[in-house]
Nucleic acid binder design. Structure first.
Length: 301
DNA sequence: GACCAGGTGCCAG
DNA sequence: CTGGCACATGGT
């Protein structure tokens, strides 16, 4: 229980910008948790009121030490980025607990933010530890998820992601993969290690690096960022990796932050993107889905 | 119904 | 190396 003074924070924007997925509106604020600690948060102007947990953990999670003004000025010469950065004033890149961030982004492929939130909350409600003082349970430990069946996870709405999360949970629970160790690695090696886990490719790895390991230069190229970077570019990009490199160069040392501002603006329809269809990005294939007529559910109930 | 969502794995050429 | 598809689910 306490109050923190924070001139450069937009709590709602930060918690709803597609990096964390488990903060629920509660009264005029939010309730959720950081790891196993329940929190209730409410912002009034420059004051952040909180109950539960402790101030240091909260400050660290919300990254109140990030110098947002320096981040904004890093793209002052790029009109679109500058506009997005100003519009997203107070949006901070969180420092999320490693496991829950890693696991949650395994859920993200081909899902909208609202769906990821549903899956995350279902996992928490069905398998997470209940926390006194919050409707939101903790994210289940690797060992808990590893002990479940693939169908248990499918019942949380995971679809084909169930297999990936289960296998990754097993590797973490067994100690074969240690999320803590990633923090000590240079970004390139950290990315490679993350990509060795099932369900984690370059994009998801970059999300995890950005939202949990404070690699603020990481640029996760999803459909939105892909379209935006394409629109900035003269030539068409060859590959997604090429587009990512282009983004890193263009957006600078805080590319991940700027990317988040652009992502938010685009999602709100506040950014004009030429050729808004996903056709501009080669890996968007789901409109070619094959219909073979087999509607049989192989994983009923 | 058709289309799309903060993509990844796998396989053929 | 690249191109092309399957993969589950839910919302508009």
């Amino acid at each position: 229980m306490g109050v923190i003074e924070c001139p450069e924070l937009d709590l709602g924007l930060t918690l709803n910008s597609g990096q964390a997925f488990h903060w629920l509106p509660a009264g005029s604020g939010y309730e959720g948790c950081i790891g196993n600690r329940p929190y209730r948060l409410r912002q009034e102007g420059n004051l952040l009121h909180f109950r539960g947990g402790d101030e240091a953990t909260l400050r660290h999670y919300l990254a109140l030490d990030h110098d947002l003004e320096a981040i904004r000025s890093s793209v002052a010469s790029h009109p679109v980025c500058r506009t997005a950065a100003i519009a997203c004033r107070g949006l901070r890149i969180l420092r999320q607990p490693h496991w829950e961030c890693l696991a949650t982004f395994i859920l993200s492929p081909m899902k909208q933010v609202a769906h990821i939130s549903k899956m995350s909350l279902a996992l928490r409600a069905n398998h997470g530890k209940k926390l006194r003082g919050s409707k939101v349970p903790a994210f289940p430990d690797p060992s808990v998820l590893a002990s479940l069946s693939e169908n248990d996870l499918r019942r949380c709405g995971l679809g084909f992601r169930a297999k990936h999360l289960l296998e990754t949970s097993k590797r973490v629970a067994s100690g074969e993969f240690l999320p803590e160790n990633i923090a000590t690695l240079p970004t390139e090696e950290a990315r490679k290690a993350l990509c060795s886990l099932p369900g984690i490719g370059r994009k998801v790895a970059n999300c995890i690096l950005l939202f949990s390991y404070e690699r603020l230069e990481s640029v996760p190229v999803d459909v939105w960022i892909g379209r935006i970077l394409e629109s900035f570019r003269k030539r068409k990009a060859g590959s997604l990796v090429e587009l990512e490199r282009y983004g890193e160069r263009l957006l600078g040392p805080y590319a991940g932050y700027i990317q988040q501002y652009l992502f938010h603006q685009a999602r709100k329809g506040l950014l004009r993107i030429p050729g808004k269809g996903p056709k501009t990005i080669e890996h968007s294939t789901n409109r070619l889905r094959k219909r073979d007529g087999s509607n049989i559910r192989r994983h009923p109930r």
